[in-house]
């Protein structure tokens, strides 16, 4: 660790259970963040600040004005520009001690297994079911820990998936919601601070895991409700019938069910 790093990370180096060994583990880690949107902004920012050594941000989207109530890495003059590159550029300036790369690639069920290989963790900031299931299955098959999160309106969810050890996203949600439950326009609403909370929770789990510390969302689904400021942890379990992490892996791409077109991913 150089002197800049010692000073930069000093406030976390003095944490109980956290020290130079843990910081070195973060620096050695290579993490994929899927999405540079509402969740991707806080996720990738906190990973950057903590000193995760190599961060790859996947996003094929461009900045829209309607992103700016929650996606704090962008400014009005960024409208129309690719998010992945912008996010990587800004985060690289925030912490020059690490490497941040923006990858302008649309994740699909066909390419996820190849794209999401060789990482120490994946932190999921995607906003649609097709990609979310693709990321889950790729993480499980490639045995990469996955930190899941999602948010809608005033509510959010998070869970941490350690392949071979804990329940995966498909164990808990074997199928996406039926087409009849397609969100209305109203449900496409989202408050910036809510994705901020969820993204920060995912990043906290990933950082602690990568540093070698215990984490609290293994086999637990955290449900956050900002209406009443309710945080609820629900026990979940692996399913032997799970097509992703059960006895035998069965590829099962999922069709996108949501009509909302403005996406974070």
């Amino acid at each position: 660790m150089n002197l800049n790093e010692i000073k930069r990370y000093s406030r976390q180096l003095i944490l109980p259970d956290f020290g130079t060994r843990e910081q070195a583990r973060l620096k050695k880690a290579k993490v994929a963040v899927t999405g540079a949107g509402g969740l991707g902004c806080p996720i990738s920012t906190y990973l950057t600040l903590a000193g995760v050594g190599e961060i790859h941000i996947f996003d094929f989207d461009r900045v829209e004005l309607s992103n700016l109530n929650r996606q704090f890495l962008y400014t009005p003059s960024d409208v129309g520009k690719p998010k992945a590159k912008l996010a990587a550029e800004r985060l690289g300036e925030i912490n020059p001690e690490i490497r941040v790369e923006g990858i302008e690639e649309r994740i699909t069920y066909d390419n996820a297994f190849e794209l999401l290989k060789g990482y120490d963790a994946i932190v999921d900031g995607t906003d649609n079911f097709a990609v979310r299931y693709a990321v889950n299955d790729a993480a499980v098959v490639n045995r990469v820990p996955l930190f899941h999160g999602a948010a809608l309106m005033y509510e959010g969810r998070a869970m941490s998936i350690i392949p071979g050890e804990t329940a995966c996203f498909r164990c808990v949600f074997p199928e996406p919601p039926p087409a009849g439950m397609i969100p209305t326009c109203r449900e496409a609403g989202i408050l910036g601070s809510v994705v901020g909370i969820v993204g920060a929770i995912q990043a906290s789990e990933a950082i602690r895991y990568l540093a070698g510390l215990e984490i609290g969302l293994k086999n637990r689904l955290l449900i956050v409700n900002v209406d009443e400021m309710r945080f609820e942890k629900v026990r979940i379990a692996r399913s032997s019938e799970c097509t992703a992490c059960g006895e035998k892996f069965v590829p099962r791409p999922v069709e996108e069910v949501c009509v909302v077109e403005e996406g974070d991913e």
Binding site: S66, T184, C185, R186, A188, G189, V259, V260, E261, E262
Partner: peptide, 12 residues
């Protein structure tokens, strides 16, 4: 206009 902007403008 598409969703959700159709609803955004209608609601306003």
């Amino acid at each position: 206009e598409k969703c959700p902007d159709t609803f955004v403008y209608t609601k306003i």
